[in-house]
């Protein structure tokens, strides 16, 4: 594979014949014609909006009157804004509730699924149905299941003598209850990625471990676990990025309440942008989210990224 410097340095090292030069030029033209749609889409709907979001964070803009320059006023206001700080705290709590449990369950499911069992296709389909289901229908269903008086979940608990629980109406429970729903809904997705990685582990490594008399736990610890590291790394990063932006579940199930107990950053951003028409303020919130996600991703990459490469 050529890097940028290889390509530009090429003429000095090897004198290209006209034919080769012609082919290189044509490959470049054809190559760019192939990526043109994706490139245009990326520029118009990702890169430019990101740059614009940076600018919008420094504006006062209610969409009715022309925007005015606010400088760092929006950012300064965020630090004083109690709802923003609650939302930040709730977002971190959401990540804590959701990410580790979700990954652990997916991994357990994938390990079970990787056994030579009967009916794997049926199990896989059943575990995957929540993933493909629309969030809205599923969240509405859970509002019903979580109903304190007539919901199925409290009914089941009443059978083992547990008093009715206000899953979504109790300020302390609302956020973890929604996280429970999200874990249930998404377990099958990461399971599939783990499963693909498990199936990519060469069998001869286990055979070699068997010859050395390794126990099952040793095989898991020294073969499976390290070879799953790239998949785990990918899942951790993507789960974190997704969890940090949690919105839909909250909008449907509690609308940020009771009180501010389920306000998250994305929910507060949405409220500012589309309920209060404070585009500049919402833009500033989005930049804070961006920087926090970037920071955590870079840190994860620094600490774990280099340890997870294996060439087989």
């Amino acid at each position: 594979m050529n890097t940028l410097s290889d390509l530009t340095a090429a003429p000095e090292r090897t004198r290209l014949t006209r034919r080769a030069l012609h082919k290189k030029l044509r490959d470049n033209l054809v190559g760019y014609s192939f990526i043109a749609p994706a490139l245009i889409g990326f520029l118009a709907f990702t890169l430019l909006p990101v740059l614009a979001a940076f600018v919008i964070g420094f504006l006062n803009w209610d969409l009715l009157t022309a925007p005015t320059w606010a400088g760092i006023k929006n950012y300064a206001a965020l630090l004083q804004d109690e709802v923003f700080l609650i939302s930040l705290r709730n977002t971190i709590m959401w990540v804590v509730y959701y990410v580790p449990a979700s990954i652990a369950i997916s991994l357990i499911l994938a390990l079970a699924m990787n056994m030579p069992l009967r009916g794997i296709t049926a199990f896989r389909a059943m575990l995957y149905i929540p993933v493909i289901s629309p969030l809205l229908a599923v969240a509405l269903l859970f509002v019903w299941l979580f109903n304190p008086d007539f919901g199925l979940i409290n009914f089941m608990l009443s059978k083992i003598g547990i008093q009715p629980i206000g899953w979504l109406t109790d300020e302390r429970l609302a956020l973890p209850s929604i996280a429970l729903m999200a874990i249930w809904k998404n377990a099958g997705w990461n399971m599939l990625i783990f499963l693909a990685a498990l199936q990519g582990i060469p069998r001869h490594l286990y055979e070699a471990a068997d010859l050395d008399g390794a126990t099952k736990w040793q095989k898991f610890r020294n073969v499976t676990f390290p070879l799953l590291a790239p998949a785990t790394f990918f899942i951790v990063i993507m789960s974190f990025i997704g969890a940090f932006q949690v919105f839909g579940e909250i909008y449907i199930m509690t609308n940020g309440g009771p009180g501010y107990s389920t306000h998250t950053l994305a929910y507060y951003l949405w409220s500012n942008a589309f309920k209060f028409n404070k585009m500049g303020y919402a833009g500033a919130i989005s930049m804070v989210m961006f920087l926090l996600i970037l920071l955590v991703t870079v840190l994860q990459n620094r600490f774990f990224g280099r340890k997870v490469q294996y060439d087989l």
Partner: peptide, 16 residues
């Protein structure tokens, strides 16, 4: 670009 949160591009896209 997969790591860019959708929350960031949402407002500029809406304005666009």
């Amino acid at each position: 670009s997969m790591m860019i949160p959708g929350a960031v591009t949402l407002i500029p896209q809406f304005i666009l």
